[in-house]
């Protein structure tokens, strides 16, 4: 079999995966697209391994590694997505923007909330100490 077929297939898979990662909004679909990209790489590894007739089959061995790592990665990724969904009721990647740089007005609000929270925590501690 000519090398062009698996190479073209891998390129197509990788492009689809890349598009999915950059464009899909659902976090689970993003993870699936990452899997597509990884598998495109695996396909390339195996194909070139066969084409080069390598003695030690390093390509195939590396593919096995990639599969294992991909399994671990998807496990952790899905766990994170599940927890985010439980907390937020959504896994929409566009709404998970807590780590953005805030404008000055937003930052003030946030810090006010923060001190308010600590103050209330302190108050409860004090009252707790008094009751005990």
């Amino acid at each position: 079999m000519h090398l062009a077929y698996p190479a073209v297939l891998a390129a197509l898979l990788f492009s689809i995966g890349l598009y999915g990662v950059l464009a899909r909004r659902n976090a689970i679909l993003m993870l699936m697209s990452v899997e597509l990209m990884l598998n495109a790489v695996n396909l390339n590894l195996v194909a070139f391994d066969v084409w080069l007739r390598e003695e030690l089959h390093t390509g195939q061995a590396l593919a096995l590694f990639t599969i294992a790592i991909a399994a671990a990665e998807i496990g952790i990724g899905l766990a994170i997505v599940l927890l985010v969904y439980r907390n937020r009721g959504s896994s929409d990647i566009d709404r998970l923007r807590d780590l953005r740089e805030r404008s000055a007005a937003e930052a003030d609000e946030a810090s006010d909330d923060g001190t308010g929270d600590t103050a209330s925590v302190k108050a409860t501690n004090d009252s707790g100490r008094q009751t005990s």
Partner: peptide, 17 residues
């Protein structure tokens, strides 16, 4: 530079690509 920190992961990834 701080302006680019939008919090959208996909923007970062696009920039990476």
């Amino acid at each position: 530079v701080r302006r680019t920190q939008t919090g959208n992961t996909q923007t970062y990834l696009s920039a990476l690509v």
